[in-house]
């Protein structure tokens, strides 16, 4: 019974973070901030969903595999977003900074 509640909770969190990432993608003004929102939120969302599925699998090998998958996605998507951030031309990157100061 507790397991069901926990799974529902984790799925809820996962969906919340995915939706937050997508809405952040929609509303943020600048490519860099959109990238930031998307990568972070999706990774945490994926963690919650992978955990929710991992808890309910019978054989623990699958849940270990899910955790490894999440680690892999975490590393690859953060590296990719840093690579993209490096490539966005400078005028756009520091438009945010100019607005602030």
């Amino acid at each position: 019974m507790i397991l069901d509640i926990l799974t529902a909770l984790l799925f809820g969190f996962g969906l919340f973070f995915f939706l937050a990432g997508s809405i952040g993608l929609l509303r943020f003004p600048d490519v860099i901030s959109r990238l930031h929102a998307l990568t972070k939120a999706d990774n945490v969302g994926l963690a919650c969903i992978a955990l929710a599925v991992a808890i309910n699998t019978e054989n623990w090998m699958i849940s270990l595999k899910l955790m490894l998958l999440w680690l892999l996605v975490l590393m690859i998507s953060s590296l990719l977003s840093c690579l993209i951030a490096q490539r966005v031309p400078k005028p756009q990157a520091n438009r945010l900074r100019e607005e602030q100061c």
Binding site: L79, L83, Q86
Partner: peptide, 11 residues
């Protein structure tokens, strides 16, 4: 960039 090498070392 180091990120590209990081991706390669992983992928």
């Amino acid at each position: 960039s180091i990120f590209l090498q990081g991706i390669l070392a992983l992928v």
